[in-house]
Simulated scan of single mutants.
Amino acid sequence: MTTTNPVLYLFASAAPPTLDIAKVIKDAQSRNFDVCLGLTPTAARWLEPQLSELARLTDHPVRSEYKMPGEPDVWPKADVIAFAPATFNTVNSWALGLTHDFVVGVVAEGIGKRIPIIAMPCVNSAYVQHRQFERSAAELRAMGVQLLYGEGGFVPNQPGQGRPKEFPWRLVLDAAAAATRT
Rank of each mutant, 00 (worst) to 15 (best):
Q29M: 12
K26N: 13
P85C: 01
D34S: 09
R135H: 13
K26E: 14
A86W: 01
S125N: 14
V35P: 11
K113S: 12
P164I: 00
S136R: 07
T58N: 09
V80M: 08
M68T: 13
T90V: 09
Y9H: 14
G112P: 03
L8C: 01
P69Y: 12
N157H: 12
A108Y: 11
V106L: 15
G144E: 06
L98I: 13
G97Q: 04
E48K: 15
T90A: 15
Y66G: 09
L8F: 10
T4N: 10
D73I: 04
I117P: 08
S125F: 08
M143K: 15
M143N: 15
I81Y: 01
V155G: 00
A142V: 03
Q158Y: 13
W169V: 10
A178H: 11
V80F: 03
P76I: 02
T42V: 13
I115N: 06
L37W: 06
G70D: 00
I25P: 09
R135S: 12
A177N: 09
M68R: 14
P6E: 12
Y127S: 11
V7F: 08
V106F: 05
N32P: 00
M143W: 14
P49V: 00
L148Q: 04
I117Y: 02
K77Q: 11
M143G: 09
I115H: 06
N32L: 03
A108G: 15
V80R: 02
L148D: 03
Y127I: 01
W169A: 05
E48I: 08
P121Y: 06
P121T: 09
R181Q: 15
D20F: 10
M120Q: 10
G110F: 04
P49L: 03
V128H: 00
A44R: 11
A177Q: 14
D101Q: 13
G162C: 07
T3W: 00
N5G: 11
F133N: 10
K165V: 02
K23I: 05
A15N: 03
D59M: 13
R135M: 12
S93D: 13
L47D: 01
M68C: 04
G150E: 03
M68K: 14
L54I: 09
F133T: 04
I118P: 05
I117Q: 13
L37K: 02
G112M: 05
G152C: 01
A84G: 08
F167C: 05
V155R: 04
A78M: 10
L8A: 11
R56S: 13
E65T: 09
G110D: 05
A142F: 10
P72Q: 10
K165L: 02
V145N: 04
A177C: 10
E53H: 10
F83I: 08
N89L: 03
T4Y: 04
A119V: 12
L8D: 06
H60P: 12
V106I: 15
L57Y: 07
I115V: 14
A175M: 11
Q158G: 03
I118H: 03
V172Q: 07
T40K: 02
K77E: 13
N157L: 15
R114G: 02
L37E: 05
L57P: 07
E139K: 10
Y149P: 05
N92Q: 05
A108N: 15
D20K: 12
P6Y: 04
Q158M: 13
D59F: 07
N89C: 00
C122V: 07
G162P: 00
L147P: 11
G38I: 00
G144M: 09
A12Q: 06
K23E: 12
F102W: 15
L57I: 01
